[in-house]
Design a protein around this nucleic acid. Structure first.
Lengths: 343, 343
DNA sequence: CTGAAAGCGCTAACAG
DNA sequence: CTGTTAGCGCTTTCAG
């Protein structure tokens, strides 16, 4: 039954070895500045010799906190180029650990429940399994943010609270308009004028944000945009169809896409028509996914500063979980453009 | 300070409401068969009315287990097509939850430590933060498996213990040779004879396994393989160079690659030479990444049954964490081939 | 089948 | 600055 060679040492073991009380050891770990220098050193030696590490469960029970952050993961979307999550998760794990938190994964969307029921979140919260959540798809108009707000559950959103002006939770987001502008301006500087936009349906406010960058860049140079925009689902097939139609009806020489997935659709169309991306028609994507990085001849893409996003998210989390909790203002970060062969 | 509207109900609250003792409530939750039917129902009603859920920390402290599984994540490898992890993680989260476990993410490889030091694992173990680990890259010859074995830490490996014949831990793997065979046979049936292999360096036993499938398929039909194999790093650039050299020196009409990343390298070479994948030269990859799914005209790829792998991993975990622990035999699963435009 | 007692390992409060 | 006391919420004895 005993899984480990020996029972791990406890506070009491360390205390005995160092010749102090248990409380002093606890202080040595959590409030070292309270101890006299030599006592502290003696305790730390005992800790090192014994290889002592505080028992999490005991600490969690006592402090009423789990030091765990819940991160819901969406069902894997196959057939899309979405790899953003991956990079973000890595950064989040690292940033969290730096402040003493670990990341607990869970399936946010279990089937068989109404839209306003989020049992996965609820269970985690009520069983005190996590201290807070990080939610990443507020922009899909899903009910998480509202639900969490209502329960006063601590959470930080990656994504602005578009449809909830009086949301009072911390958020971190990337300026989609700046990204769209970046890509469009890049193409204009490459000599393109007829630059098409392929984005998502209008109810995607994230999509509209990115689109605004495209129209801003175009309009500020008095380049007409009429007939050059298309709004579709975020799939390769949709991107392919949309680009085929646009090519036939509006003769663009370049495409700015709201996602790498859509941009891949454009590459499909070009491939089918024997057109060379970057030479005959320029294409840019969004997210700098692995697909963008590996597809020949390379897909120019707007790269989100996900590492920085994670750092800001954790920073907001620290405020939220502090005493007293502090909710900072939303943070908006700037994307960059990674230029590759497709433009 | 109080984060939630009210303090969550405890066992005592439920007991009072149901008019029974705390212990009876505990039994109702953990050993319902011990209770009389009407008592059980009364307790369950009280639980439902109060929205009671056991406090994790308390339960963990008492049972000396965290009900958490540690999953190390490697630093994100940009520029590769590796998306296998993503699908696996999803499946693992779901499978684990079904048996009462959650997945805790951590950075396996922190910098600044010698190869035989794995402080991230050690800390998690000694602080009783996780009950077990799932390790996913035993094939890289990294020291995790040996280290964990030595400490008697419970873990399940996704990947065979290639270099450790007397390893006594459960593992789940996918038959790489079968995958290589599948791809090669498919190409042979499509009429190809000069089929090249691009794989990893010889010290990658996973790579050698996959390669064995290629040579097996070739040899069983008496097709010569001389000069048709190349072993390189797992990067797009290596795949590109290797395929260029092979094309010049051995004139293959098809490439079987040990990874989608290498296959993308081949597509780069074809692109540069104006050759059409699937028409002029056939290409197959390995892992069925998002890249394979989205690149035009689609990359034929060997797909690993990651959902099934996760299920088997969790099954092994259940055995490992049971009383008494049982270590089942290794499980080897069969991959499938997803045929797309590149062949 | 149900209840009472004990204690997991830790830290918040207070006393010395 | 250090030690004592108490108890977080739960489950495992052991009696009734």
């Amino acid at each position: 039954m005993q899984r480990h060679p020996v029972t791990p040492p406890t506070l009491a073991d360390v205390a005995e070895r160092a010749g102090v009380s248990r409380q002093t050891v606890s202080n040595a770990v959590n409030n070292p500045e309270l101890l006299r220098e030599d006592t502290l050193r003696r305790v730390q030696e005992a800790i090192a010799e014994l290889g002592y590490l505080p028992n999490r469960a005991a600490r969690n029970l006592r402090t009423r906190s789990s030091h765990l952050i819940g991160l819901p993961i969406k069902p894997a979307e196959e057939g899309t180029a979405n790899a953003a999550m991956d990079r973000f998760v890595h950064s989040l794990v690292d940033s969290s650990r730096a402040v003493g938190y670990h990341v607990l994964l869970f399936s946010g969307q279990r089937t068989g429940y109404a839209a306003d029921e989020l049992p996965a979140y609820d269970d985690l919260l009520r069983s005190t399994a996590v201290d807070a959540f990080v939610v990443t798809d507020t922009y899909l108009g899903n009910p998480q943010a509202a639900w969490l707000n209502e329960r006063r559950a601590p959470f930080v959103a990656f994504g602005r609270p578009w449809n909830d002006p009086d949301a009072r939770h911390p958020w971190v987001d990337v300026d989609g308009a700046a990204g769209g502008d970046l890509a469009t301006t890049h193409l204009i500087e490459r000599g393109h004028h007829r630059i098409a936009w392929i984005g998502w349906r209008k109810d995607s406010l994230l999509g509209e944000d990115r689109r605004a960058g495209w129209s801003r860049a175009m309009r500020s140079r008095d380049i007409p945009t009429t007939g050059l925009a298309s709004r579709v689902e975020d799939t390769v097939a949709s991107g392919r169809e949309a680009s085929a139609v646009l090519l036939d009806e509006a003769q663009p020489t370049a495409f700015v896409c709201a996602s790498d997935t859509l941009a891949m659709g454009v590459l499909h169309t070009l491939y089918e028509r024997g057109l060379k991306p970057g030479q005959d028609v320029a294409v840019t994507g969004f997210d700098d996914s692995l697909v963008a990085q590996t597809v020949p001849p390379g897909l120019t893409s707007v790269r989100l500063p996900l590492e920085q996003v994670a750092i800001e998210v954790v920073h907001a989390l620290e405020g939220l979980l502090g005493a007293p909790p502090v909710v900072g203002a939303g943070v908006l970060l700037e994307p960059t453009l990674v230029v590759r062969g497709s433009s």
